[in-house]
């Protein structure tokens, strides 16, 4: 079942025509990976879905209802969590306060989810009263993911979670996304092909603002020509 459908969207950033017809679908319970070189338009695609980079053409539907004309907060409240490329941590707020700002409810379900998150990321529990600005890059990434996951969102958009992190932290983050995959649908933008191929079910390659290829991740793993052509992987 398709949860999110992006159909031929076009987005301008200032005078630049960044997205020139990106289309893809995210099916419920799957990890959909958006791949492509730097500057291909992957981050803008996620920001367009969230309404942070409004589209000028095309349609975005979530649960078969159009969402592209809604303001960002309404899109989020439909059940879409967002982990931006820069993590978006509120540096002057503690880990606890970062989580509290994100928590839409304080019911039993949310508290159970919080408990589960803190087991998944014990560092967050250790630094619960520490300001976000003092966390390491990896801890910030964990906090950003935790914040997007605390509400019972059906879909998570995660932008380059491995960027700038040490391999051991990347592994930790990857494991956490794998565990979340059992409870929610994920759209992942990732440069690290190893990571993407291990947790992704379906892929879309974006090049020059357009979707140029799609398929099962298993197929891509074996297609050396495609990897070389669009991802620069020999």
């Amino acid at each position: 079942m398709t949860l999110l459908k992006v159909d031929a969207i076009e987005t301008y950033l200032g005078q630049y025509h960044i997205l020139q017809g990106v289309s893809f679908e995210a099916k419920k319970g799957e990890v959909t990976v958006l791949l492509g070189r730097n500057g291909a338009g992957k981050t803008t695609t996620l920001r367009s879905v969230m309404g942070l980079a409004p589209i000028s053409d095309g349609v975005i539907t979530y649960n078969n209802k159009p969402i592209h004309k809604l303001p960002t907060y309404k899109i989020s409240n439909k059940g879409i969590g967002f982990v931006p490329e820069d993590q978006g941590i509120f540096n002057d707020l503690t880990v606890e306060e970062n989580m509290k700002v994100a928590m839409k409810k304080k019911d039993d379900v949310t508290m159970e989810r919080l408990e589960w998150i803190l087991k998944l990321f014990p560092d967050l529990k250790t630094f619960w009263h520490k300001k976000g600005g003092y966390l390491s890059g990896g801890q910030k990434q964990m906090l950003s993911i935790a914040r997007s996951y605390i509400n019972s969102n059906d879909l998570l958009l995660i932008d380059e979670p491995s960027k700038g992190l040490a391999p051991i932290i990347v592994e930790k983050v990857m494991r956490s996304i794998q565990e979340m995959k059992e409870k929610t649908t994920v759209i992942l933008v990732e440069q690290n092909f190893m990571m993407a191929s291990m947790i992704g079910d379906r892929f879309y390659i974006i090049d020059d603002g357009k979707t140029v290829h799609s398929g099962d991740m298993k197929e891509l793993k074996e297609d050396e020509q495609l990897k070389k052509q669009y991802l620069g992987i020999a």
Binding site: M50, F82, F90, D92, L93, V101
Partner: peptide, 24 residues
Amino acid sequence: TRLGMTVRAGVMNKEMVEALGINI
């Protein structure tokens, strides 16, 4: 209060506050 934390968060990053479902 959560409202106050939201105000402080908004001072730092309005876009992220919106992305967390809050009408800034």
